[in-house]
């Protein structure tokens, strides 16, 4: 835990080969940040040259405020027991990412899910479009701007008989005749 020798060797191997940034997060965890065009070369390099033959996971995070999707590829070395994260960011407006299911077959499932849930296109990706959501006509639902509350309110009816519910804070300020100013309301109980 103290020296992180293997971790640093891995970090150097990847960062120097591709001239990219990265860091050792903790023991057994190393991350590198890559441009979206070099991701597949890094993954292939890690798989063929370094022995990262297992892909654990692939995820997408919607950073709506930065206007980006972050893709994280989690790959694993079964002998060294190291995990390498390859992270990249793609433009949220033009969400296109290289298809890597030729490197790992099961990446196909992740990519199909991301296509449905985030609307990311993977050119050349083969497979059912309706993998999870059948007949979905709204924006990809895992995007941050998709409001589940609103969707539920529009799609389903609420159970009758619960209209008499009161808000404790409102009830108390009504009773004491005070008004919480608007700028303070964001600090009231949700």
């Amino acid at each position: 835990m103290t020296d992180l020798v293997k971790e640093n060797i891995l970090l150097n191997a990847v960062t120097s080969a591709f001239k990219i940034e990265g860091k050792v997060i903790r023991d057994r965890r190393v991350e590198v940040h890559a441009d979206k065009n070099t991701v597949s070369s890094i993954l292939l390099f890690a798989k063929k040259q370094l022995g990262y033959i297992h892909m654990n996971h692939m995820t997408c995070i919607d950073w709506i405020e930065q206007g980006e999707f972050e893709l994280v590829y989690t790959i694993y070395h079964p002998v060294d027991k190291l995990t390498l994260f390859v992270k990249t960011r793609i433009d949220r407006e033009i969400p296109v990412m290289e298809n890597i299911d030729t490197i790992w077959d099961h990446a196909n499932t992740y990519e199909r899910e991301m296509r449905e849930m985030f609307g990311i296109e993977f050119p050349g990706l083969v497979g059912e479009h309706d993998f999870i959501l059948e007949d979905w006509d709204q924006i990809p639902p895992m995007r941050k701007e998709f409001d589940t509350h609103k969707y539920a309110a529009e799609t389903f009816y609420t159970r009758p008989g619960r209209e008499d519910a009161k808000d404790v804070r409102e009830e108390l300020s009504k009773r004491s005749g005070t008004v919480v100013p608007d700028f303070a309301k964001k600090y009231s109980r949700e």
């Binding site: 059912e128 993998f131 999870i132 959501l133 059948e134 895992m142 998709f146 589940t148």
Partner: peptide, 18 residues
């Protein structure tokens, strides 16, 4: 064989974000 929709999606990951 192809695995297909099972009508089981409950959007847990989305709900967790809320």
């Amino acid at each position: 064989a192809a695995t297909h929709v099972g009508y089981l999606h409950r959007a847990f990951e989305k709900l967790i974000e809320r």
